Simulated assay, not measured.
Amino acid sequence: MSQSLTEHRIIFKWTATVLAAVAVLVGAPLLLGRLTPAGTNWERLSDISQTYGTPLSIAALAGVAVSLVYQSRQTAVTYAEAQRASHRQLVIMAIDDPELMVCWEPFTVPVTALDAKQIAYTNLIVSNWSADYRLRRCPTW
């Protein structure tokens, strides 16, 4: 089975990226050894790099924490959207087929088929408002 040209390009780009990263990791110490003047105090340079490395590590950890919070929120939004889509589909099925309308909740007072459709449609509107409020998609609320 042959792969498309686009797939070959993607594989080539990833392979080239990995090889370039390996070359940088292997070549950096060698390049630094050649470029630094003789008599360089490597212990002092190591202490300086550790001093700068700690805040960078803290910043990276904070970035991961922010990313996880954002990801958690996105997961909650996706879950809420899936629930809402399921609810919407069920209500639309009930609106289209009056025999399914009685499955929702029996009305305590007699209503016409048109009234039942309007109530179901109003339910969709209120559910949409509720979802918008919970997902903070309404700037005026």
Rank of each mutant, 00 (worst) to 15 (best):
S2W: 12
S2T: 13
S4I: 13
L5D: 14
T6F: 08
T6I: 06
I11K: 09
T15I: 12
V18D: 00
L19P: 05
A20D: 05
V22D: 03
A23K: 06
V26M: 11
G27T: 08
G27Y: 03
G27W: 09
L30T: 05
L31P: 01
R34C: 08
R34Y: 08
T36E: 06
T40G: 07
L45C: 03
L45A: 08
D47C: 01
S49N: 13
S49V: 03
S49E: 03
Q50L: 09
Q50W: 10
Y52F: 14
T54C: 00
L56T: 10
L56F: 13
S57C: 07
S57P: 01
I58S: 05
A59R: 05
A59T: 13
A60P: 08
L61K: 01
L61N: 06
V66E: 07
L68D: 00
V69H: 11
Y70W: 10
Q71M: 06
S72Y: 07
Q74K: 08
T75G: 13
T75W: 05
V77R: 02
V77T: 04
Q83Y: 08
H87W: 13
I92V: 15
M93Q: 09
A94F: 05
A94K: 06
I95F: 01
I95C: 09
D97N: 15
P98D: 01
L100Y: 06
M101H: 10
F107K: 02
P110D: 09
V111K: 11
T112I: 04
A113R: 12
A116G: 03
Q118V: 08
A120H: 06
Y121Q: 11
N123Q: 14
S127F: 07
N128E: 11
W129F: 15
A131R: 04
A131L: 07
D132M: 13
Y133H: 09
R134V: 09
R136Q: 04
R137L: 10
R137C: 03
P139A: 00
W141T: 01
W141K: 01
